[in-house]
Computed example of a mutant assay.
Amino acid sequence: MSQLIRDYIELVWNQGRTEEAERFLTEDLIQHNPNLPNGRKPLVGFIDGFRKQLPEARFEIRRLAAEGDLVFIHSLFTAQPGHRGTAVVDVFRIANGLIAEHWDLREDVPETTASGNDIV
Results as ranks from 00 to 15, higher is better:
H32D: 13
G39T: 07
E101C: 13
A65C: 11
E19F: 05
R58I: 15
N117F: 11
G85N: 11
R63I: 04
E10N: 02
L98G: 00
E19N: 13
P37T: 15
I61Q: 11
I30D: 02
T26D: 01
G16A: 06
V120G: 03
F24S: 06
T113L: 11
I5R: 11
L11I: 06
P55V: 09
I61C: 09
S2P: 04
T78F: 07
W13P: 12
V88M: 04
P110Q: 09
I119Y: 14
Q15M: 01
I9D: 05
G116H: 13
V12L: 10
Q53K: 11
K41M: 08
N117M: 13
F46E: 12
A21Y: 03
R62K: 15
G39K: 03
I30W: 07
R51E: 11
D28L: 08
K52Y: 03
E22G: 04
F46C: 08
D104F: 04
E111C: 05
D108P: 15
I5Y: 08
R51H: 03
G116N: 14
V91H: 04
Q15W: 00
R93D: 05
T113R: 10
E22Y: 00
R40H: 15
F50K: 02
G82N: 05
N14Y: 01
F59M: 11
F59V: 08
R84W: 03
A66E: 15
E10C: 00
V109K: 04
E101W: 08
R17C: 03
V89F: 13
R23P: 07
V91G: 06
R58N: 14
L11C: 05
N35C: 08
N96I: 00
D28R: 12
G16C: 01
T86K: 01
Q3S: 06
A57M: 12
T26R: 15
L98V: 00
E27I: 06
E27T: 13
K41G: 10
D69V: 08
A87P: 14
A57Y: 05
H74G: 02
Q80C: 03
L98K: 09
L98T: 02
I61S: 10
D28G: 13
L25R: 06
V120M: 05
D90W: 09
E111G: 14
R51P: 04
S75I: 03
F24D: 10
F59G: 08
D28I: 11
E22P: 01
K41R: 14
D7I: 00
G16I: 00
R93A: 08
T112H: 08
F24N: 07
D108T: 12
L4G: 01
P37R: 08
E19S: 15
T26I: 01
Q15R: 10
L11F: 00
V89N: 06
A100F: 00
N14L: 02
E10M: 01
G82Q: 05
D7S: 05
F24P: 04
V109H: 07
A65Q: 14
T113F: 07
A79W: 09
T18W: 02
Y8G: 02
V91T: 10
